[in-house]
Design a protein around this nucleic acid. Sequence first.
DNA 1: TTGTAGGCGTTATCAA
DNA 2: TTGATAACGCCTACAA
Lengths: 369, 369
Amino acid sequence: MSDTGAAKRPPTIDDVLRLRAAEPLPSSDGRTEDGAARDGAAPPRIVEIARLAGVSPITVSRALRQPEKVAEAKRRKILEIVERTGYATNPHARALRSGHSNIVAAFVSNLQSQQFCLAVQGCGEVLEPQGYQLMIGQTSYSYAKETTMIQSLREMRPAAVMFTGVIEIEENRRALRALGIPIMETWAYPRDPIDMLVGFSNIDSGRFAAEHFAGRGYRRVAFIGRRSGRGALRLNGFREGARAAGLDIVAELSVDRVTSMVDGRRALAELLSGNAAIEAVFCANDLLATGALLEARRLGLRLPEDIAILGFGHSDVAEELPPGLTTIGIDSRDLGRQAGSMILQRMRGDMPAEPIRAIDLTLTHRGSS
Amino acid sequence: MSDTGAAKRPPTIDDVLRLRAAEPLPSSDGRTEDGAARDGAAPPRIVEIARLAGVSPITVSRALRQPEKVAEAKRRKILEIVERTGYATNPHARALRSGHSNIVAAFVSNLQSQQFCLAVQGCGEVLEPQGYQLMIGQTSYSYAKETTMIQSLREMRPAAVMFTGVIEIEENRRALRALGIPIMETWAYPRDPIDMLVGFSNIDSGRFAAEHFAGRGYRRVAFIGRRSGRGALRLNGFREGARAAGLDIVAELSVDRVTSMVDGRRALAELLSGNAAIEAVFCANDLLATGALLEARRLGLRLPEDIAILGFGHSDVAEELPPGLTTIGIDSRDLGRQAGSMILQRMRGDMPAEPIRAIDLTLTHRGSS
DNA sequence: TTGTAGGCGTTATCAA
DNA sequence: TTGATAACGCCTACAA
């Protein structure tokens, strides 16, 4: 049925042919007298701008790329014509000749993660006004896919690459380095990033969690999370912090899947079915923590009196679920913005004074702990 | 602090210079004897493949693009060499010469929407294995941004464009049509899509909601949602359905912002503070519905006895929040996949028999209604 | 400060 | 079925 309220309309042959009819070229060069292109006409080329300005094409190119090298009056005239005609450089011709495009490749581990998307958005906010286009790809946490995508970069010739994560495979690290362009890694704090980094220590976040529990007077604590990747780092930090603060980690529950809250529900149920009396649980991410929180409420437990729950990720649902989830995390959009501006600086040829930046971890305290 | 546990390390000059050292070219043409490129070497070109195969470049090009036009033996040899050397066509040279790239532009209204991201993912799943790259942009529900991005397409020369929405501005519709490439609109069911459509009727979803309420025996119903865009369509359908089923719409609450659950909380609170006794509320999206559900529980209301709540969007949180949110929606990933395969068909030059496809709306019944 | 010459890597066109 | 030729639009290198 149609949104206009009419009965469902079978597509007519007109629908099918409409596109074919779209491109009549009324005048010889498809352009009005002032050089502005009309719909359906080929966009203006640099030679056209040059002709209108009475200069050579290379001068137009310079007026756009290195304005300081073109005489004031000419530059103004050229830019005015560019504006009027809506001229835009053909990015493919530029990439072909100059060897690099205006595309910045951004790889997220998972498009479903609000935090990763926020980081990419932040990065785009900085880069897009400068004429760069973000090309977003999803690695799906798969090394194979990561490798394929990194290989495809050789031909794409992006101006820079950014990841919501760090690259661990040495071969991929080498391939990226060999591109000779700015590479940004994020979301961790490795000893030796490929090129640039805006990250935070996952180990610290575990320590932070332990310290928080200690400060609130909990002694018998537990961990839920993955035993690989970032989860493992958070666990290591949690252990360290617990030892330092004299806490007992009475249980560590490893989950393989972290795809929905159900995984967190199950994990908490399993944890509670053990013998150890648990006062507080640190969940390595908010999806697990949210599931755990819901399960605790379903079981009629009071939070935080019967059990305290702490998550990681600053997810927005966390705020709304009574009694509110306490969560450790970063400002992902800010991470993206910082990454974007460092990338920008590098693309302009400057080396940032600090190619490695740390983002602050913060704890948002709510009712669950 | 570092994830390796070491103390925070100030970046050394090595960090800064590492990238500079990345590209030594040990042999004259930076390539091993079998033609395979090494890290840091320029990737092989089509002439190199042609030389190795003892044919002309154009034959290599044909072997890749129109294999049926190349003799069996030659084709096999060429493809074997392509495989061995890791040759990949330079996309910029191809785009420059042929006039179209392998990029498919995908515009989402909002990257934070899981449903939109799912649709884009589904589309990518179909297109990427065929060698197309998805370039994702965010319009932020802004006409200005939409217009800018559409203009930039003229130069990007994508192979196709997809939107999680429909284009309303006539100028943008014309600009898109003038690109002469497949255009895919989604998420609604307008009378006259630009080119292709995989959509569903937002009006129908409102009718569906009213019918559901009628079937469950609710009489006094209400609506929460935006008065513009899709929200307005859902309201129209809800009104129609209510009239047909003999329901009383005792309140229609318009919200301007739908950015967090808080908006839904507030809306329900406001609704309940009115005089009308309300039995059931249809919320135009799940974010609002989730907020409303939480608010109802906070107020100690029983769902669905004291108040029934119905959402739209099949969001995943909806499942987990007790007593479970009843929600109308579509399979977004499937929408994306269908869109992708129609786009693919068009890019290959075939016209799909049905350029307009309807996606089924389904209702997932849970405890809230 | 401006311009000339030429080529980036591929594919359209036409000829054989 | 294959190849020669030229051109896509721009920018690097060099010259004036």
